[in-house]
């Protein structure tokens, strides 16, 4: 049996690995809120989360990927629709709840709901003048909050606690004009399953997930460097990647399956349209090896900016200034 994965790849991989001893694929899932630091907009990217907190609703997120069997033949085809709601508690502290959502799988046919995830995220430092931001988060994927174990595609039967670190930097402060639209973001996660050994004595590895995006904002170029045609002025093209590497409690290799030590991941180009109240993003996810997939997949997101849709009500922090980072430009 072959399977697929979404964000974080290791979780989906463990879900499938633990339940079906299938191959591990990596993939991204649409992320949380966009972030504005100074005059830089960091979009809600598809492979990793953006480095800030905000009030947003990602609905739906979409992912498509074809797995590869260990013999290199095409494996399961999966389509997944997910969601995520992010809420600011203060200007620098945010909470989110979401799920990888519902997955339809072909070859073999199966379907099921993934677990619910919750996250608390804090912006430790930001420098608007230099478009620089650092944040951290604690994420919990709650066991058995998705489809039951009797389902054709059951949810992960154990919880996973993940610590996360984020960084974002825009290059609007460099002196070379054509470099100013560039920005980078990065994320590193340490995934700790709360159950290390399953009832069948198989192991749930601790793993590291890491990814980055390289962005070239035509929106930034239009406002700061050189005006561009209307068709392009709200676009942010990127190149992104996300990878997962098991680091401890790694199961013994099983003949005929992928080695459990293998790093999985996807890379690929993406483009984001930044509207006044929403963002649309699409990415081609290219598996980095056969353990990650057999064909180019797709990820997409429709993300609503609640801070712009309802700035005076549910789009503002619960406590403190109504606008995150207000007064610090």
């Amino acid at each position: 049996m072959i399977c697929f994965s979404m964000r974080p790849p290791v979780r989906r991989a463990r879900r499938r690995a633990a339940l079906a001893a299938c191959a591990v694929l990596a993939g991204g899932a649409p992320a949380l809120a966009h972030t504005i630091v100074g005059d830089r907009v960091f979009p809600a990217t598809l492979t990793i989360d953006d480095p800030g907190v905000n009030d947003e609703l990602a609905l739906p997120t979409f992912a498509y990927l074809t797995a590869a069997n260990p013999d290199r033949s095409p494996g399961a085809i999966s389509y997944t629709l997910g969601w995520e709601y992010a809420k600011t508690i203060t200007a620098d502290l945010g909470f989110s709840i979401g799920s990888e959502g519902y997955t339809w799988q072909k070859r073999p046919n199966a379907a099921g709901w993934a677990n619910i995830e919750t996250q608390l995220k804090y912006v430790f430092y930001q420098d608007p003048a230099h478009e620089f931001i650092v944040a951290g988060a604690l994420n919990v994927n709650w066991a058995n909050t998705g489809s039951p174990q009797s389902a054709s595609l059951p949810s992960t039967p154990f919880s996973t606690v993940t610590t996360k670190a984020y960084i974002g930097k825009g290059f609007g402060d460099v002196t070379v004009d054509w470099l100013r639209p560039f920005a980078i973001t990065g994320e590193v996660d340490y995934n700790i399953p709360t159950t290390t050994i399953n009832p069948d004595l198989s192991l749930n590895p601790t793993s590291l997930t890491y990814g980055a995006t390289l962005q070239y904002s035509l929106q930034y170029m239009n406002s700061h460097v050189q005006e561009v045609p209307d068709l392009f002025k709200k676009l942010i093209p990127t190149f992104e990647g996300i990878f997962t590497t098991p680091v401890s409690n790694i199961p013994a290799p099983v003949p005929g399956n992928y080695t459990p030590h293998v790093t999985t991941g996807v890379v690929g180009p993406a483009v984001y349209y930044i509207g006044q109240y929403f963002e649309v993003g699409v990415m081609a996810q290219i598996p980095i090896n056969s353990a990650s997939g057999s064909h180019v997949g797709v990820m997409a997101v429709l993300d609503f900016f609640l801070d712009d849709i309802a700035p005076d009500s549910f789009g503002k922090p619960l406590f403190g200034p109504p606008q995150a980072r207000a007064g610090r430009y």
């Binding site: 504005i36 406002s223 700061h224 700035p311 606008q323 207000a326 430009y329």
Partner: peptide, 10 residues
């Protein structure tokens, strides 16, 4: 809506 922004160009 009180959102602040700033920038520069040549």
């Amino acid at each position: 809506d009180t959102h602040r922004s700033a920038g520069s160009y040549k």
